[in-house]
Design a protein around this nucleic acid. Sequence first.
RNA 1: GAUCCGGUAGCUCAGUAGGUAGAGCACUUGACUUUUAAUCAAGUGGCCGAGGGUUCGAAUCCCUCCCGGAUCACCA
Length: 493
Amino acid sequence: MIQAIDPHITEEENRSIKMTAYRESGRDPYPHNFVRTHSIQPLLQEFDTLGEEESSEKIVSIAGRIIAKRGHGKATFGNLTDQSGAIQYYANINRLGEHVLGELVHLDVGDIIGVSGHVFRSKRGEITLHIHEFVLLSKSLHPLPEKFHGLQDKETRYRQRYVDLIANRDVLRVFETRSKTIHQLRNYLADMGFLEVETPVLQSIYGGASAKPFKTHHNELGQDLFLRIALELPLKRMVVGGFEKIYEIGRVFRNEGVSFKHNPEYTLLELYQAYADYSDIMQLTENLLSTLVRHLSGSYTIEYQGEILDFTPPFRRITQAQALMDYAQVDVNSGLEVLYSKALELGLDPSVESVRGELINFIYDKAVESHLIQPVFIIDYPWETSPLAKRKRGNPDLVERFELIIARMEVANAYSELNDPIEQNDRFEDQRRAMESGWDEAHHMDSDFVTALKYGMPPTGGLGIGIDRVIMLLTNSASIRDVIAFPHMKDKK
RNA sequence: GAUCCGGUAGCUCAGUAGGUAGAGCACUUGACUUUUAAUCAAGUGGCCGAGGGUUCGAAUCCCUCCCGGAUCACCA
């Protein structure tokens, strides 16, 4: 394995030559397993009590990737990482002999090895593994990014996330946090008595949101299908069937623009609770999110992009009408003309014929959301743009709906679910008319859903939470692409 | 979809007025038995995003296109 190597060849060729030589020495550069006694982080903790230059007698074994090498002639240092952390290793000629030490020195940064030895604290105070034996577990043929600056190029980081994860350790922590948070979410809901269910991704009628779908086709059945844009309608059918507390965490797909807070596929949590209304759901939502924050940070506050977000419940609640008054100086009770001119002022396309509720929503989206940093429930929306929500008690122009806005992002959306089949049918008809007049994101008539409601659905509160955005907040990530392991990218030609 | 910024060695980045393409890290060779961005010495490594154009000569100027980022627009 130790041999003169032509300096003109590339690093990758170099590594291949080493790999071949290793194989020709009768050993497998890609063996099948390795038994460890420790992961690195627990090992560091276990031996943290060692004094200055003190050694442990105990033989331990760990495995991981070489991320740095520092050769010193008859001795060598390096660093090894596994998922849990990184540790320094040390080896010298006294223990390994010239040949084996040479083999260790000729391993490459990126190689995955298994090592065993004893732990000591180095002169500089660092817990270090003194290698007695090592074995190559996977030869790395492609050089890694530079050790100091890491991998910076965003395109490469997203396209080749595996390199990003190796080179930028905090990225790995983000995805650990994502996984653990979703696990906690499931535990929380299970503790509250919610059951997790699964509903179809492929649907012949898509619904539950205003969005453009992805279209696909089943060859054998000769049937066009859509990828779901929401979870809502199948879940409410299950509530009709008798489930009282259910949720689904699933991927939904929207054929729309891509931005720092939009990915074509994203993870949505939707839950439905029978006999509850949107006030109950509001309380559930703030308890759920504040619990997640407290678990993660130990308090109710987190820092997000330079601002401190306070999740201490209860969150602020403000009606959409009041928010429009406060942030846009618009009185929703003004005449249609006033609303229309305000909307035009904010950039409404004048060719669009808008009804009252749409104008209000337009003004809200343009002028209000960007002011909302701290968690706030915006409640009570015009009925026209919420075809699946129940009208507000005492004000039939509104529906019982709330959105939770945090850091200028809509994080949750919920309502008292409409369970009157006749009105639901009428609302779908309104949507159909909107679609005929050119709004391609209107809801489709789902007559089976109306039929389901005719069998009787209990009064129900429903909630949708954009999981990716919650993870953005919890991991202080500026872009949704930083919390999706493999965000959508255009093909490179 | 619009505007702005970017794409140079495996990685991070320089690159003069248009005149043979650079550094650091990594890699190779040598020295070095407690270093940690190890150090020292000597080397290797490039279709300068792609394609056209101007020019004696283009990484550099012009045009078109591709990909990415940011800001808008639509949305969650």
